[in-house]
Design a protein around this nucleic acid. Sequence first.
DNA 1: CTGAAAGCGCTAACAT
DNA 2: ATGTTAGCGCTTTCAG
Lengths: 331, 331
Amino acid sequence: MKKKSIKDIAQDLGVSKTTVSFVLNKKGDEKNISKKTQKMILDYIKKVGYQPNQIAKSLKNGTTNTIGYLVPDISNPFYAKIGRTIEDLLWEKGYHLIIGSTDEKKEKEERLLNMFLNRQVDGLIIASCFIKGEVLKSLSEHNFPMVFFDREDPGCLANYILVENKTPMKEAIQKTIDKGAKKIGLLSITPDVYSLKLRIDGYKQALLDNGLEYDQNLLRIVDHNRIKESAQKELKYLIEAGVEVVVFTNNQITATAIWLMNMLYPEKVKEITFVSFDNLDIFDYSMPKVISIAQPIDSIAKQSVEILAEVIKSKKIKNTRIELKPKLIVR
Amino acid sequence: MKKKSIKDIAQDLGVSKTTVSFVLNKKGDEKNISKKTQKMILDYIKKVGYQPNQIAKSLKNGTTNTIGYLVPDISNPFYAKIGRTIEDLLWEKGYHLIIGSTDEKKEKEERLLNMFLNRQVDGLIIASCFIKGEVLKSLSEHNFPMVFFDREDPGCLANYILVENKTPMKEAIQKTIDKGAKKIGLLSITPDVYSLKLRIDGYKQALLDNGLEYDQNLLRIVDHNRIKESAQKELKYLIEAGVEVVVFTNNQITATAIWLMNMLYPEKVKEITFVSFDNLDIFDYSMPKVISIAQPIDSIAKQSVEILAEVIKSKKIKNTRIELKPKLIVR
DNA sequence: CTGAAAGCGCTAACAT
DNA sequence: ATGTTAGCGCTTTCAG
């Protein structure tokens, strides 16, 4: 009882492979296959539980109905949620997902990218640090269907699904200044990513707009290879410097800092306010209070899928840049 | 500058496809290809950036180096973390992951399973509700390489990577009883999953061991299709019934309940203790206090990959049942 | 209305 | 030491 192929079916039924293939692909009527033959084939298919070999199909068609999803870390809730939503949306269009986590490492990213390409994925959805890397650049030049989200390189023309960074960050911080904050620190992971730079710009702008001095020492960078230890050190610096507000450039670092505050400075959690780019459910009740900038996860996923599908379908060059508005959540 | 195939390479270089194929597969020496030819081919390969077409390879070899990862929801941190770890471990062995989220829906699960099979995955790593479903059963009978984790059906022989359920749950609850708790409620999602049943058994056992009455009304079931609303209703019931402790059977429901407590009953968060199967970082500082049972994520991932690789390699029937010990975290 | 046959890119047994 | 060729399972043109 090994797996039947089209050939087996045809033989068993005494018809040709062609006929079976046509019926399977619902081209029976179009190709004038008699109702009787069609029914016979369909019944037999069902009976033996025939499943077409997609690999063979792919080889023939040159299309795999597979999309690569390349992100820094699929276990980061932001990427996991978006991945999940994309999975569902793509499923409706007949695609499914291969995933890859890069850990923000250039060589891992290139290796995964090559793996995806060897696997003949039909398209890519990417949140990458290295948009300028060789592989991506060459893909871009060859007009391979891709959409980037979360991060951009303004030097590269491509399809981007982004959210506004600078202004929302500025406005979120403004809320704390309105309440009297004067000493505001910032914690970010290594900002070799343009979006993070913009978020930091928003921070600087907020200070500037309010005539507050920008103190470079209050802008602390956390090593993303050892987040916990590094964040602990940098947070300590800020606390001891007496900041009233700490600003974070993404959810991962905020979550870590909340944990650290509660573990190490429980007596201070009521005095300090956090501002976080990215939102998490726990911010609704965790201490310190968090003013957060919630990215529109569903829209990001939806737009990414939409644009990608469009590009794949049209085979045309397209450089869309969509900038979505995040939502400010004041707590 | 379209993509080169082996054929193109062979033509360009004036050798045969075979020679190129052998060199590519590092069989050059074994097959007595002259060093000179080998070098020539390798140099050319590098120059034109040749990438083998894995689809063609797969069709030929009947193996795709792809593993399907089937879970209820890839955006659940538990499955996301395990997925991430599995991704890394499999990568080392030359495999990569296709993902599918079932939403605990039987038909979605079967559709995804069929998709995986059409795609000729070499194996499956599954956390499923429907181990007894048609497709899985037939796969099992045909000895398809699979390993199940997180959930089991004791009626089905298969490879299982599990954690102890009953005893740890009992012991966790015992801690609260030791501190004087008398009225203990439980909140669970629909427990059509055997592991959840065992966790509930642990709850009952804890009561029994301590001569506490088992009140069926304090065992509340949450509809997993609308967790938030349903949990709110059931939690309210327990609170109003005056429980001192609430037990949860998985992280998702605990996280929701913590959120609800903080939103709706902030004045009560200090009086109540939670017991949670599954751990989350936030439990370290969130209120109510949570005594949690932490599943050994890394071991689960590692064992799953190990067993799967073994089964794929050996082509032998194997029914391993590994039961890992979770870690009790008292807070 | 149905069938034969070519070919997608790759591997490997079998020539030479 | 290297080339010829069949074939993996499928689609699709062209011929009956």
